[in-house]
Amino acid sequence: MKNFRDSEHLLRFAFLFAMLFVLFLVARHFVVPKSFGEYGHYRGAAIAEMAAPQPHFAGQSACEACHTDIAAKKKTGMHSGVHCEACHGPLARHAADPASVQPLKLDTAVLCVRCHAASAAKPKNFPQVAAADHSGGLACETCHHPHSPAIQGGGAK
């Protein structure tokens, strides 16, 4: 009895500690998101949230669904592997509603040299030219059609 009377103050401190712990457990119950731990140590709902945003680039198959003529032309040429939006830019809104957004007219003087300007750093088998010497100032599409760039019959078609 004497031992208890002289040590009960320790229990007071322990009680304080225990109360904080209970408070913590209660708070934890309400604060931790419901889907936490669904797949692992994270908020499971985050996966669906990350999958939700709308793309800006529609993707090649969306383009080809309508532009069958250009798709057919591209397939035969050197640019068959280049997807439409790689040059024309993000056009998901155009794919959803063609009338709403029209692709801009492209400036081949800027666009073509982005890839084809000669540089010793590029793979040797990649077609590249020193633009100034190559065309004598003529626009690229004078000779090369971007959708099928090989020169056919010696000039523009």
């Binding site: 790689a86 993000p90 890839c115 990649f126």
Partner: peptide, 9 residues
């Protein structure tokens, strides 16, 4: 987006 837009694959 990067794969979609890579011209050389």
């Amino acid at each position: 987006a990067c794969c979609e837009n890579c011209p050389t694959g």
